[in-house]
């Protein structure tokens, strides 16, 4: 009994993408949205490398190179997004898109 790794990891990449997309849509906290985007990106990377793996005989290096570039670009994107989120927090005192109104009602 053996399952093709292409099947397993490809499906995992797809599910990670979908789960991350769901989190991006439904979570109001800014930091968690950034986490969700990172998970989506990981799913895409996993899918790309799985395609490059093929059947494990000849490994395609082009997806590896693309993913390497993508990892560094995603770190830059994450850093920029975190700086934006911190800035939003410091300016509006809000780190959560939904809590802002309830918090101002509290006071």
């Amino acid at each position: 009994m053996s399952v093709s790794p292409t099947f397993v990891y490809g499906l995992t990449g797809l599910f990670l993408f979908v789960v991350g997309l769901g989190g991006l849509i439904s979570c109001p906290q800014l930091l968690r949205k950034i986490l969700a985007v990172n998970i989506m990106v990981s799913g895409v990377f996993l899918f790309l490398v799985t395609i490059g793996y093929g059947h494990g005989v000849i490994i395609d290096p082009v997806p590896h190179a693309m993913v390497l570039t993508g990892i560094v670009v995603s770190v830059s994107g994450t850093a920029v997004a975190l700086a934006l989120a911190c800035r939003v927090h410091e300016t509006f005192n809000m780190s959560d898109l939904l809590k802002r109104r309830t918090r101002s009602n509290d006071r």
């Binding site: 490809g10 797809l14 993408f17 979908v18 769901g22 290096p61």
Partner: peptide, 30 residues
């Protein structure tokens, strides 16, 4: 959004699992 995401994942999984033309990849050219 859950319904839409379920639809999206089903569509993606279908596209992934449907055997298409076997891609040759770029390994040989590299």
């Amino acid at each position: 959004s859950l319904v839409m995401l379920a639809g999206l994942s089903a569509a993606l999984a279908w596209a992934f699992l449907t055997p298409g033309p076997d891609p040759l990849g770029l390994a040989h050219r590299v």
